[in-house]
Amino acid sequence: MIHESTMRPILLVEDNPVDLDLTLRAFKQRNLSTPIQIARDGQEALDWIPRWEAGETMPLVILLDLKLPRVDGLEVLRQLREHPVSRALPVVVLTSSDEDRDVKEAYRLRANSYIVKPVNFEKFMDVATQIDLYWCLINHPPQ
């Protein structure tokens, strides 16, 4: 089932330029057409909240790195959950860390999914494909 949501973007919160570039390229390699918005640190991600409140299009999903400058990923998640506008917004943690405490803390703050970034680029592209497929096509997000 395909929704009219194809125009709604993915918000990618990523500070590492290489990871950022690779993520964009992975989407491109697999011909994934969902538009991607970018926040380069935690604060930039949080800056979206007033804009959504003002009526700008909400993303379908936020791909959130944990280790971020200024405001770290878990703090971003906590604040997203505090604001009514983003309380139910799907957030997928996409990070290098597979530390137990990060996983636990992310789910405690109501992350919707937790994915460890693979080192291998094929696997990374698989991950990108599946994220796009699931969160942008199959999943039915709140309006």
């Binding site: 590492n16 290489v18 990871d19 690779l22 390229r25 992975a26 944990l66 280790k67 990070t95 290098s96 860390s97 597979d98 530390e99 970034k117 693979p118 080192v119 291998n120 680029f121 990374f124």
Partner: peptide, 15 residues
């Protein structure tokens, strides 16, 4: 776990 793997991902990705 965070910092050592990130550059590897870059090397592999661009290769």
């Amino acid at each position: 776990s965070h910092d050592l793997k990130a550059p590897l991902r870059g090397i592999d990705g661009y290769s």
